[in-house]
Simulated assay, not measured.
Amino acid sequence: MTDPFIIPEEESASEAIEAIRDELELFDDWMQRYRYLIDLGEKLPDFPQEWQNDHFRVMGCQSQVWLNFREKDGTIFFAGSSDAAIVKGLVALLLRIYSGRNFPEILAVDPIFITDLGLAGALSANRSNGVASMVQAIQKIAQSYL
């Protein structure tokens, strides 16, 4: 089995947000961007079946979303998944931003990037609330280490 925890591609969370912004701008409309999100979700490492339970579930999401983490030397690595294709893509997007970062960097990332990237306006209210719940869960984990 491959390691389910995400290793960041970019040096920092802000670089990841900028890279995602650039990638989203390549698409002409939100149908293409949804396809991009679905593709991101399909590329996530497999999330172990034994973690797909209420212990790892992110509450506040309409779809089932699971999140696990490991901490090593002040850095948190996240693994996640969802049972819904677009939401799984949103999980992948958030993990690209937050995984492999130290506690202060995770807490310093202002979730306004969700609005700045145009995601908040393009998602249903339930999905937007779910994204906010995922960000809160990630930041709560980081906060617990400070």
Rank of each mutant, 00 (worst) to 15 (best):
P48Q: 08
L107S: 10
M1Y: 12
E42Y: 10
N129M: 01
L146M: 05
E9G: 01
I141H: 02
N102C: 11
P45R: 10
R101N: 09
R21V: 01
R33T: 11
Q32I: 05
Q62E: 06
L93R: 07
L40C: 12
S128M: 09
R101E: 11
L117W: 09
D83S: 10
R33M: 04
E15K: 15
I97C: 03
E71F: 04
I7M: 06
D3A: 08
P8I: 08
V135Q: 08
E10D: 07
V131N: 06
P4K: 09
E15M: 05
A16T: 13
K88N: 13
P48I: 07
I138V: 15
R127H: 12
K72W: 09
A19L: 08
F103C: 01
S124F: 06
A13C: 11
R70Q: 14
I138H: 07
L93H: 13
R33H: 11
L107E: 15
D54P: 02
D110P: 01
G74H: 14
T2L: 11
Q62W: 00
Q52F: 00
Y98H: 06
R33G: 03
V58G: 05
P111R: 12
T2Q: 13
C61L: 07
N53P: 00
D73W: 05
T75S: 04
I112H: 12
E9K: 15
E11G: 01
Y98F: 15
A120W: 05
S99K: 09
N126P: 00
Q49P: 00
N68A: 15
F27N: 00
R35M: 05
Q52D: 03
I6Q: 10
L94S: 05
Q49R: 13
N53T: 08
F47T: 09
N68C: 04
R21A: 06
F27M: 00
R35Q: 14
P111M: 04
T2Y: 10
R96V: 01
D28G: 07
P111G: 01
W66A: 02
D110C: 02
S144W: 13
V91Y: 14
S12Q: 10
E42G: 10
I7A: 14
S81L: 00
M59L: 05
E50I: 06
L107P: 01
